[in-house]
Protein backbone atom coordinates (compact mmCIF):
# COMPACT_ATOMS: atom_id res chain seq x y z
CA UNK A 1 0.00 0.00 0.00
CA UNK A 2 1.35 3.43 -0.98
CA UNK A 3 2.33 5.83 1.80
CA UNK A 4 -0.25 8.51 2.62
CA UNK A 5 0.68 11.98 1.34
CA UNK A 6 1.56 14.48 4.06
CA UNK A 7 -0.85 17.19 2.98
CA UNK A 8 -4.53 17.80 2.97
CA UNK A 9 -6.42 20.62 1.28
CA UNK A 10 -8.73 23.28 2.63
CA UNK A 11 -10.96 25.45 0.49
CA UNK A 12 -12.36 28.80 1.52
CA UNK A 13 -15.89 28.31 0.24
CA UNK A 14 -17.04 31.81 1.10
CA UNK A 15 -14.31 33.66 -0.77
CA UNK A 16 -15.17 34.69 -4.37
CA UNK A 17 -12.43 32.64 -6.05
CA UNK A 18 -12.63 29.68 -3.67
CA UNK A 19 -8.93 29.58 -2.96
CA UNK A 20 -7.48 26.25 -1.84
CA UNK A 21 -4.81 25.93 0.85
CA UNK A 22 -2.43 23.10 1.50
CA UNK A 23 -2.06 21.98 5.12
CA UNK A 24 0.57 19.61 6.38
CA UNK A 25 -0.41 16.64 8.51
CA UNK A 26 1.56 18.09 11.40
CA UNK A 27 -0.11 21.50 11.17
CA UNK A 28 -3.54 19.87 10.91
CA UNK A 29 -2.97 18.28 14.30
CA UNK A 30 -3.50 21.71 15.93
CA UNK A 31 -7.14 21.68 14.83
CA UNK A 32 -9.45 19.33 16.67
CA UNK A 33 -11.72 19.23 13.62
CA UNK A 34 -8.98 18.36 11.13
CA UNK A 35 -7.44 15.90 13.54
CA UNK A 36 -10.79 14.10 13.91
CA UNK A 37 -11.22 14.06 10.13
CA UNK A 38 -7.79 12.54 9.62
CA UNK A 39 -8.46 9.89 12.24
CA UNK A 40 -11.91 9.08 10.86
CA UNK A 41 -11.08 9.10 7.16
CA UNK A 42 -7.54 7.75 7.13
CA UNK A 43 -7.20 5.60 3.99
CA UNK A 44 -9.98 7.34 2.15
CA UNK A 45 -9.38 10.01 -0.45
CA UNK A 46 -8.89 12.75 2.07
CA UNK A 47 -5.48 13.69 0.73
CA UNK A 48 -6.60 14.39 -2.82
CA UNK A 49 -6.92 18.00 -3.86
CA UNK A 50 -10.39 17.31 -5.21
CA UNK A 51 -11.50 16.23 -1.75
CA UNK A 52 -10.60 19.52 -0.13
CA UNK A 53 -12.30 20.43 3.15
CA UNK A 54 -14.62 23.43 2.80
CA UNK A 55 -14.59 26.39 5.19
CA UNK A 56 -18.10 27.70 5.35
CA UNK A 57 -17.76 30.82 7.41
CA UNK A 58 -16.98 34.36 6.29
CA UNK A 59 -13.25 34.72 6.68
CA UNK A 60 -10.73 36.25 4.34
CA UNK A 61 -8.14 34.20 2.50
CA UNK A 62 -5.50 36.22 4.26
CA UNK A 63 -6.79 35.25 7.69
CA UNK A 64 -7.02 31.58 6.71
CA UNK A 65 -3.53 31.72 5.32
CA UNK A 66 -2.20 33.38 8.50
CA UNK A 67 -3.81 30.82 10.74
CA UNK A 68 -2.53 27.89 8.71
CA UNK A 69 0.90 29.48 8.64
CA UNK A 70 0.78 29.79 12.44
CA UNK A 71 -0.10 26.08 12.63
CA UNK A 72 2.79 25.23 10.33
CA UNK A 73 5.22 27.29 12.38
CA UNK A 74 4.07 26.04 15.75
CA UNK A 75 6.03 22.94 16.51
CA UNK A 76 4.69 22.30 19.96
CA UNK A 77 2.57 19.18 19.78
CA UNK A 78 -1.06 19.99 20.62
CA UNK A 79 -2.48 18.06 23.55
CA UNK A 80 -5.14 15.53 22.75
CA UNK A 81 -8.59 16.51 23.97
CA UNK A 82 -7.55 20.11 24.56
CA UNK A 83 -10.59 22.24 25.13
CA UNK A 84 -11.28 25.89 25.69
CA UNK A 85 -10.83 26.47 29.38
CA UNK A 86 -13.06 29.13 30.85
CA UNK A 87 -11.47 31.72 33.11
CA UNK A 88 -8.01 30.54 32.21
CA UNK A 89 -5.51 33.34 31.86
CA UNK A 90 -3.31 32.68 28.84
CA UNK A 91 0.22 33.90 28.56
CA UNK A 92 1.39 34.70 25.05
CA UNK A 93 4.80 33.41 24.06
CA UNK A 94 7.16 35.70 22.17
CA UNK A 95 6.46 34.11 18.77
CA UNK A 96 2.72 34.31 19.37
CA UNK A 97 3.04 37.96 20.32
CA UNK A 98 4.88 38.45 17.05
CA UNK A 99 2.10 36.67 15.19
CA UNK A 100 -0.56 38.92 16.69
CA UNK A 101 1.49 42.02 16.05
CA UNK A 102 2.20 41.19 12.42
CA UNK A 103 -0.91 39.38 11.24
CA UNK A 104 -3.71 40.72 13.42
CA UNK A 105 -3.44 44.40 12.78
CA UNK A 106 -7.11 45.37 12.88
CA UNK A 107 -10.16 44.52 14.92
CA UNK A 108 -11.74 42.90 11.82
CA UNK A 109 -8.83 40.49 11.58
CA UNK A 110 -9.09 39.68 15.24
CA UNK A 111 -12.78 38.99 14.79
CA UNK A 112 -12.10 36.70 11.82
CA UNK A 113 -9.39 34.95 13.80
CA UNK A 114 -11.79 34.27 16.65
CA UNK A 115 -14.40 32.88 14.25
CA UNK A 116 -11.95 30.75 12.31
CA UNK A 117 -10.13 29.28 15.30
CA UNK A 118 -13.49 28.51 16.90
CA UNK A 119 -14.68 26.88 13.66
CA UNK A 120 -11.56 24.78 13.21
CA UNK A 121 -11.12 24.14 16.92
CA UNK A 122 -7.58 25.50 17.13
CA UNK A 123 -7.84 25.86 20.88
CA UNK A 124 -4.47 27.46 21.76
CA UNK A 125 -4.83 30.16 19.14
CA UNK A 126 -8.47 30.65 20.04
CA UNK A 127 -7.58 31.11 23.71
CA UNK A 128 -4.83 33.52 22.79
CA UNK A 129 -7.18 35.54 20.60
CA UNK A 130 -9.66 35.72 23.48
CA UNK A 131 -6.86 36.83 25.78
CA UNK A 132 -5.90 39.57 23.34
CA UNK A 133 -9.48 40.86 23.40
CA UNK A 134 -9.52 40.62 27.21
CA UNK A 135 -6.27 42.57 27.41
CA UNK A 136 -7.74 45.21 25.14
CA UNK A 137 -10.72 45.68 27.44
CA UNK A 138 -9.04 45.31 30.84
CA UNK A 139 -8.39 48.46 32.81
CA UNK A 140 -10.45 50.67 30.52
CA UNK A 141 -13.44 52.78 31.39
CA UNK A 142 -16.79 52.32 29.65
CA UNK A 143 -16.09 55.35 27.47
CA UNK A 144 -12.67 54.05 26.45
CA UNK A 145 -14.10 50.63 25.59
CA UNK A 146 -16.83 52.29 23.55
CA UNK A 147 -14.24 54.25 21.59
CA UNK A 148 -12.01 51.24 21.07
CA UNK A 149 -14.71 48.82 19.98
CA UNK A 150 -16.79 51.39 18.13
CA UNK A 151 -19.83 50.92 20.33
CA UNK A 152 -22.46 53.62 20.34
CA UNK A 153 -24.06 54.67 23.60
CA UNK A 154 -27.74 53.90 23.30
CA UNK A 155 -29.01 53.90 26.89
CA UNK A 156 -32.41 55.14 27.86
CA UNK A 157 -32.47 57.95 30.47
CA UNK A 158 -33.55 55.42 33.12
CA UNK A 159 -30.61 53.18 32.32
CA UNK A 160 -28.30 56.19 32.39
CA UNK A 161 -29.56 56.97 35.86
CA UNK A 162 -29.04 53.38 37.01
CA UNK A 163 -25.49 53.41 35.66
CA UNK A 164 -24.77 56.68 37.42
CA UNK A 165 -25.95 55.08 40.66
CA UNK A 166 -23.65 52.12 40.03
CA UNK A 167 -20.74 54.50 39.70
CA UNK A 168 -21.40 56.20 43.04
CA UNK A 169 -18.39 54.35 44.41
CA UNK A 170 -16.32 57.12 43.01
CA UNK A 171 -15.12 58.36 46.34
CA UNK A 172 -16.34 60.72 48.89
CA UNK A 173 -16.05 63.99 47.03
CA UNK A 174 -12.96 65.30 48.79
CA UNK A 175 -9.79 64.02 50.31
CA UNK A 176 -9.70 64.33 54.09
CA UNK A 177 -7.61 67.26 55.19
CA UNK A 178 -4.16 67.10 56.74
CA UNK A 179 -2.84 63.77 57.80
CA UNK A 180 -5.81 62.09 59.38
Amino acid sequence: MAAQPDFLWIKNDMSPDGRVFRVSRQAAQHSTILRALIEDFEGIDLWKKEQCIPIKIHVSDQCLSDVLQWAENTKTAPEKGENADNNKQVELAAEDMHFFREAITTSEKLYELLMLTDYLGIVPLYNMACQVVVNMIMGKSAEQIRRMLGISKDFTPEQEEAIRAETAWAYDEEQPPLDR
Partner: peptide, 12 residues
Protein backbone atom coordinates in the same frame (compact mmCIF):
# COMPACT_ATOMS: atom_id res chain seq x y z
CA UNK B 1 -14.68 42.53 38.01
CA UNK B 2 -13.84 46.16 37.22
CA UNK B 3 -13.75 45.70 33.45
CA UNK B 4 -16.87 43.54 33.58
CA UNK B 5 -18.92 46.43 34.93
CA UNK B 6 -17.23 48.91 32.58
CA UNK B 7 -18.16 46.72 29.63
CA UNK B 8 -21.73 46.38 30.86
CA UNK B 9 -21.95 50.16 30.92
CA UNK B 10 -21.03 50.64 27.27
CA UNK B 11 -24.31 49.87 25.49
CA UNK B 12 -27.74 48.35 25.92
Amino acid sequence: PISLISLSQTSR
